[in-house]
């Protein structure tokens, strides 16, 4: 019984994070469905979005850097 509750809790936590990351990615390209927006504002946690935002920004920067390096390699 106890284990089951922990499982539900941890899967819920994963779900919250996945949703937050998706929402941050959607915000990067300026596209979000109304349903998801309402869900985020009703159930989302501010801190989760801040962390997800910072994380995705870092990933974005690294991918731009990587892309430039790749192009430079291709060019030279």
């Amino acid at each position: 019984m106890m284990i089951e509750i922990i499982d539900i809790k941890s899967s819920l936590r994963v779900k919250i994070w996945v949703q937050a990351i998706w929402s941050v990615m959607a915000s990067f390209i300026g596209v979000q469905s109304n349903t998801n927006r309402e869900r985020d504002f009703e159930h989302g946690r501010f801190s989760v979005f801040v962390v997800a935002g910072l994380l995705m920004t870092l990933i974005f920067l690294l991918s731009v850097y990587g892309l430039v390096q790749l192009v430079m390699m291709y060019v030279q």
Binding site: I29, L67, V68, V71, V75, Q76
Partner: peptide, 20 residues
């Protein structure tokens, strides 16, 4: 949104070569 981004990145490859 994604398709133009990909086109822009693809165009940046030859442009970078020329700029360099």
């Amino acid at each position: 949104t994604v398709v133009p981004s990909i086109i822009l990145i693809a165009m940046a490859v030859p442009a970078t070569a020329t700029l360099m």
